[in-house]
Design a protein around this nucleic acid. Sequence first.
DNA 1: GTACTTGTTGAACG
DNA 2: TCGTTCAACAAGTA
Length: 272
Amino acid sequence: MPELPEVETIKLGLQKTIINKVITKFEAKDSKVVKFQPKNIENSKVKSIERRAKMLIINLNNDKSILIHLKLTGQLIWNMSDNGKIPDKFTRAIFYFNDGSRLFFNDLRRFGYIKLYSARDLENIPELKKLGPEPFSKDFSIEYLVQRAAKVKNRKVKQFIMDQEIISGIGNIYADESLFDAKILPTRKVKDIRLSEWKTLRESIIRILTLGIKYGGSSVDAYLDTFGNQGKMHQYLKVYRRTGQPCVGCSGKVERITLGGRGTHFCPKCQT
DNA sequence: GTACTTGTTGAACG
DNA sequence: TCGTTCAACAAGTA
C-alpha cells in the first residue's frame, strides 16, 4: 500500500528519471483512472515533482500540474527499454518522453487516479485543501497534536493518526508500526494519552516513516518503486500482518483486531 | 465459493 | 453542525 514512504521513494525515483523531459504523447487506457484529456499535457515539459500526503504532483511548464493518487495498488514504473513485463493488462496509462523512455501507471484494482489541475489552483483543490501537516514539518508539533486531540476526545488513537486531515501520509502499515514503536495500544482514546506519550508517539511516527524511506518502502502487496523493484521495509515490520507470530520485543504473540474496519496489529504485552 | 485485503468519500445516525 | 460509524468501490490472493 503506497503510504508516505512509498510515495516519497517514487518521488525520488521520478526526480532521477523524468525531470526536464518533454511528454510527447500520453496514452489513457482507462477513463476511470485518467480524468483529463491527454492533449492537455502533450508537448509540455516536466519541471518538478512533489509529494503531498500520499499523492504525487508533477509540475509542468505549461502552468498545469498532474496529480496522481496510487491508492491501494497503483504503481509508477519508468522503463527506458521494454522488459517484456510491462505494459500488461493492469497498465492504465502511459507517458511517452522525448528521449524514448516511458512511464507506466499500473493499477490492479483501479482505485487510483490521475488528474490535471492549473498550478495556481492547486492549494484550493479538494484533495489537498484539508490535509493536515506533513510529519516532517515543524507544524507537526506536540502542541498541534494535543490541540487537535482535544476536539476529538473519544477517537481511538490509531484512527486519529491515520486521519489525513490531522496528519498527512500515515496509512495502515505505518500506523500499526508507529504505535508499536511508541508502546501505545491502538485502541486507546486520545483523551487518555498523556503528554509524555504524545511526545513519544510523535517521535515514533517520524522515526518509522524515516526508516520506511531509508529502506525504499514496504512491498507487502503490489508496491514497486520507479524502477520496478520491491522495497525492503517489509522485512523490518514488527507487527503489521504478523498475527500469531512472536513479538520481537517480548515473549508474547502479535494479535490482530479490526479497528475502524481495518486490520490492526499489536503486541498486548509491549503496548499499553 | 468465501473471507480477506485497504485509501478515501459520502451517507446515515444520534 | 458535529462526531462517529459504516458501506462502497475493485479485484486479486489465500
